[in-house]
Design a protein around this nucleic acid. Structure first.
Length: 213
DNA sequence: AACCAGGAGAGAG
DNA sequence: CTCTCTCATGGT
C-alpha cells in the first residue's frame, strides 16, 4: 500500500484545504502571526486588520509601529512580530514587482525569506507552500513528535531530516504536501495529544512504536 | 496555577 | 552542532 499514513489521515479527517485566507498577503502574515501561538488569537488579529482595512503590504506599512503592535497584541511576541511583518511587507512589495519579469527558483525564494528577521525554516516553507504555491514541505513540532512516535527516528530530529521524511509521505505535489501538513496538525490537536498519550481513537495507533512524547 | 499554543534567534558550552 | 533562555498573550 502506497502512502499508508497519508491515506489513513485523509480518510479519517478528510481534506483540509489549507490555508484559510483571502490573499497571498493574508496567508503569509498569518503564518508569521501564528508562530508559537494558537490560531484563535490569530483570527482576532486578522479581524482587526480587516476592520482597519489593512489587506495589502502597502496599507500595512502606512501605520506606525506602535499602532501595529497594539493591533497584533493578542498573538504575543508583538514587538518581534511587527518587525518581521514590516520587513516581510517590504520584501513582498519588491517580490511582486520583480516576479513579473524574473523567474525565481523555490530555493532562491526560500533563501530570501530566511534572510528576514523572524522567519525561520517552518514559516519560510509555510509561506512558500501555502501563499506562493511552491513545492516544499512544512514540518513542525507535531511532525517531529509523530515521526518519533512512529519510530521513524529514535530522537527528536532536525528540521531538514523531518522535511525529507515528510516528502516521502505523499506524492510529490504542492497539493499533497499542502494536505499532509494540515492533516498532521489537525490529527495532533484532536486525537494524538499529550493529554491523550494512549492516542485513541487514532488512525495511526497500530503504526506507533512509542507513546507519550 | 503551571502549562501550552500551527517558532525564531541569541548565547553558552 | 546541541542545549537553554527569552520573547508575550490568552486559554485550560
Amino acid at each position: 500500500m502506497e502512502y499508508p499514513i497519508y491515506k489513513r489521515l485523509l480518510h479519517c479527517y478528510g481534506k483540509q484545504n489549507w490555508w484559510p485566507g483571502d490573499s497571498q498577503f493574508e496567508i503569509a502574515i498569518s503564518a508569521i502571526l501564528t508562530q508559537n501561538t494558537t490560531w484563535k488569537n490569530v483570527e482576532i488579529v486578522l479581524n482587526r486588520f480587516k476592520a482597519e482595512k489593512i489587506t495589502t503590504p502597502q496599507q500595512f506599512l502606512q501605520f506606525p509601529e506602535s499602532t501595529l503592535q497594539s493591533i497584533i497584541r493578542p498573538v504575543g511576541f508583538y514587538q518581534l512580530k511587527v518587525r518581521t511583518l514590516i520587513e516581510f511587507s517590504r520584501w513582498f512589495i519588491q517580490y511582486n514587482q520583480s516576479v513579473k519579469r524574473k523567474h525565481f527558483s523555490t530555493t532562491d525564494l526560500r533563501h530570501q525569506l530566511l534572510n528576514i528577521r523572524g522567519i525561520g525554516n517552518e514559516t519560510a516553507d509555510a509561506i512558500l507552500l501555502y501563499a506562493l504555491n511552491r513545492y516544499t514541505s512544512v514540518s513542525d513540532k507535531y511532525t517531529q513528535r509523530l515521526a518519533y512516535r512512529l519510530g521513524v527516528f529514535d530522537k527528536m530530529e532536525t528540521y531538514q531530516k523531518l522535511a525529507i521524511w515528510l516528502q516521502t509521505l505523499t506524492p510529490p505535489t504542492v497539493q499533497d504536501q499542502n494536505e499532509i501538513h494540515a492533516l498532521i496538525v489537525v490529527h495532533s490537536k484532536t486525537t494524538c495529544t499529550k493529554k491523550n498519550p494512549k492516542c485513541q481513537p487514532c488512525p495511526l495507533f497500530d503504526l506507533c512504536k512509542r507513546q507519550g512524547l
